[in-house]
């Protein structure tokens, strides 16, 4: 105990600071390296064209939006495996509600889907003390099944003109609305985690739930909020899918939970709670998008893409998470 004190209470050299923190910032280095690599090797295949860059942003936006909320979830020491299925369900409920009552009904239906799922997940986990790993794993199936059932497994077209313009289809000037959604959610998430009392409580609960309780924090309520926020954000992602494709379908968002969790962990958020960065998560999502895009442009077959993407993610996560496991 006392010898570690002597070490840490000495002033740190810049080299020491770099050695201690470079892993936390590996995502930025990694993103730059991957981006430069593709920029150089795929220069003649149009990787750097504005069109391609904006395309990457569009394809990544939904993952990035969900990754913002997942950052809060992992920071609080929980996990949400239902985000992809909830996005699919919300795309269906929104599309059906738009067809029935127009734009306001669609928005309300999408949000209410998230609130309902979040409250169910949250109560099961904070009142009945079922781990979120299990409640959200079960909810993954329930949400997908519900989406298939209410839609009769059919694609529900979105015929409203305004809806796609707001949610994911259109552009404002040269900027895709999807990119704006990503930025807005990202900025809000960053401020919530970094600057608000709620964010501090989320990190404290994830860092040491006993100490948080002893400090007068209502740990159950904080977890409930985080889980609800995650489900609502997943629903927003589903609404964006519905806008972009002008369709609600149960397959939308399928498997996204893995990309989302990979993006968040790549970004430097701890899987064990107590430490999180929204900016890192968005960069993590963009990095996954860049890798997907680059591998396609390289002309890799889908099977090769899967293997290469998996390898890159494992490498990056290994680097960013090394030394962050709890003692």
């Amino acid at each position: 105990m006392s010898d570690t004190t002597a070490m840490s209470e000495r002033r740190e050299t810049p080299l020491g600071y770099f050695k201690r923190t470079w892993r936390q910032n590996i995502i930025y280095i990694g993103f730059a390296v991957v981006f430069l690599f593709f920029a150089l090797t795929l220069h003649d295949k149009g990787f750097l064209t504005p069109n391609n860059i904006l395309n990457i942003a569009r394809q990544t936006a939904m993952i990035a939006v969900m990754a913002v909320a997942m950052t809060l979830v992992l920071s609080s020491g929980e996990i949400d495996l239902s985000v992809g299925a909830v996005a699919g369900l919300a795309s269906v409920t929104t599309a059906m509600a738009v067809a029935w009552g127009g734009l306001p009904a669609g928005i309300a239906a999408g949000i209410m889907t998230g609130v309902t799922v979040g409250l169910i997940n949250g109560f099961l986990s904070t009142r009945l003390m079922i781990p979120t790993f299990l409640t959200t794993l079960a909810m993954m199936g329930i949400a997908k099944g519900t989406a298939m059932w209410v839609s009769g497994t059919a694609a529900i077209p979105v015929l409203d003109r305004t809806y796609p313009a707001i949610f994911g289809g259109g552009n404002i000037g040269a900027i895709p609305t999807l990119l704006l959604w990503m930025l807005v959610i990202g900025v809000i998430g960053h401020i919530v985690l970094r600057r608000t009392k709620f964010g501090r409580q989320v990190l404290a609960v994830g860092g040491n739930v006993v100490a948080a309780r002893y400090s007068g924090i209502n740990t159950g309520r904080i977890k409930l909020w985080v889980i609800v926020i995650s489900a609502v954000t997943a629903s927003l992602a589903g609404m964006l899918y519905a806008g972009r494709l002008q369709t609600g379908r149960f397959q939308l968002g399928e498997g996204d939970e893995l990309s989302v969790i990979a993006a968040v962990v790549l970004g430097g958020t701890s899987l064990f709670g107590g430490k999180g960065t929204v900016v890192g998560s968005i960069i993590g999502a963009l990095m996954i998008g860049v890798i997907n895009n680059g591998l396609i442009l390289m002309g890799l077959e889908y099977s090769q893409q899967l293997i290469a993407r998996g390898g890159i993610i494992i490498l990056a996560v290994a680097l960013s998470q090394a030394g962050t496991r709890p003692a």
């Binding site: 990190l203 860092g207 040491n208 006993v210 100490a211 002893y214 107590g274 430490k275």
Partner: peptide
Amino acid sequence: RQGLVLAHSIQR
């Protein structure tokens, strides 16, 4: 265990 979030800063 009960008093501190060990990984967090003094201010936190």
